[in-house]
């Protein structure tokens, strides 16, 4: 979320702080830099592509946390049959 969006919704800057923090803490906790994260995504994708046809455009990979637990959730949509 950009500053402009938050401001146009009439929210204060605290939501920006919170979202940035949540992102930073995930990186701190798993000790993975944004570059390494991108590399991991690319490698994972290569592995999956060896076995199945996936739609490159709609792949989602994120690390999120709920309370005490962190999880990496990846979504690889399969290519539609022609």
């Amino acid at each position: 979320m950009s500053d402009d969006k938050a401001e146009s919704r009439g929210e204060g800057s605290k939501n920006i702080a919170k979202e940035r923090l949540q992102f930073i803490l995930v990186q701190d906790r798993i000790k993975l830099s944004p570059q390494q994260m991108e590399e991991m995504k690319a490698e994972l994708l290569d592995v999956i592509k060896k076995y199945i046809d996936v739609d490159d455009n709609d792949i989602e990979m994120d690390i999120s946390r709920e309370e005490e637990m962190m999880a990496m959730i990846a979504n690889f949509p399969l290519k539609k049959r022609d």
Partner: peptide
């Protein structure tokens, strides 16, 4: 005052983040 206008994280925000 800053919490009131949404420009500072409140108690719940910080507790939620740090758990």
């Amino acid at each position: 005052d800053m919490v009131g206008r949404g420009d500072m994280m409140n108690i719940d925000d910080i507790v939620e983040i740090l758990a």
